[in-house]
């Protein structure tokens, strides 16, 4: 591939993922149907099975699921630089839109009605986070041991002034130890 073609290819990755970034409302799960249409049906960059695989791995690797999936598809299409181009494309609209909005909001933050509106919105955000926890609980707490891990991290996270990093590392170790013991007993 000559240099000009390679540039065009990277640009196409960037641009396609930028468009998908604008169309994704809510992230994560909301993105899958859009990926299916663009990446599988329109561009033929991956098969349905590959996309499902990438998505599953994107969920069980650290970071934002949509970002992980974008890197995966980009690297398949154009190697390391392809992975980077796709990911930068995906986040580009967010950076532009949020920077503009954040600037606007900080200008109007002192108006009485804006303060009242955000006081109402804060209540809603509490409920939205609460609902997210309920949904995650069903998927992550599957037996007594996972219930204990959940409760311990919940209390620790709330009452200890510790970086979440420590809980994540300890929980991964606990998962490996518990499952290893189980495998030995079986």
């Amino acid at each position: 591939m000559n240099e000009k073609n390679q540039f065009r290819e990277l640009w196409e990755l960037f641009w396609t993922f930028a468009k998908m970034g604008v169309m994704t409302f809510g992230g994560g799960m909301a993105m899958l149907p859009i990926l299916q249409r663009e990446v599988v049906d329109n561009k033929d960059w991956a098969t349905e099975e590959e996309l499902t695989d990438y998505y599953a791995i994107g969920q069980c690797t650290p970071g934002i699921i949509a970002v992980n999936t974008a890197t995966f598809i980009g690297q398949k299409r154009g190697g390391v630089s392809g992975g980077i181009a796709a990911t930068l494309g995906l986040v580009f609209p967010s950076v532009v839109i949020i920077s503009i909005l954040a600037g606007l909001i900080s200008n109007f933050a002192d108006l009485a009605w804006v303060k009242n509106a955000f006081a109402g919105i804060q209540v809603c955000v509490c409920v939205l986070i609460f609902n997210a926890v309920l949904k995650l609980l069903k998927k992550s707490v599957v037996d007594k041991r996972t219930a204990v891990i959940f409760a311990a991290v919940l209390l620790g996270g709330l009452f200890l002034k510790l970086s979440p990093v420590w809980f994540v590392v300890a929980a991964a170790a606990a998962g490996i130890i518990l499952k290893n013991l189980e495998a030995k007993r079986a």
């Binding site: 707490v141 996972t146 891990i149 959940f150 991290v153 919940l154 209390l155 809980f167 998962g175 490996i176």
Partner: peptide, 15 residues
């Protein structure tokens, strides 16, 4: 690892 990570992640978001 993910057997332990998933409930921990939920616990952190819960906190």
């Amino acid at each position: 690892a993910f057997y332990g990570l998933r409930p921990a992640s939920t616990g952190l978001i819960g906190a």
